[in-house]
Amino acid sequence: MSTEVEAAEKVTGEIDLSRVDSLVEPYIGRKEMVIPALQKVQDYFGYLPRPAVEQVSKRMNIPLSRLYGIATFYAQFKMKPRGRYIIRVCKGTACHIQGSPKIAERIEDILEIESGETTDDLRFTLEEVACIGACALAPVIMINDDPHGRLTPDKIKDILDRYQ
């Protein structure tokens, strides 16, 4: 769904603000619920487009600066569109000592992006995650909801090729 939205956005350059209204509706007047409100908006768009955050600010009557203060504080909130496939490289301790830096490096080499970036064709976004709790299979990456464990750098190419 979010890819359609992004595609539409690319064409029109516009964000469907009425969607934002309905997403934040349950939280209006409840300022302590600002994080869940932003989470809902991000769930829908895949990231937090500026016009959408502005709309949240208007609807919830919270200064834009405060919203950005919150959004930039928490790692979960993304300010840029993300790829169809999110690669999360586990940076947990067990993964680290069993070679996750080498895995990350290999992915960076193949996709020619760095951690936190998205490929130009919006196919992949590369991220790091503190621990996905599959330490027995270290090193592990997740591509969207699929975990891939017991990795070595030479396995990466084949795995990425499966996600088109």
């Binding site: 940076k91 503190a130 621990c131």
Partner: peptide, 11 residues
Amino acid sequence: EGDPGAFMDRS
């Protein structure tokens, strides 16, 4: 539970 390398709470 945010410690890298720990997942007992989740379990």
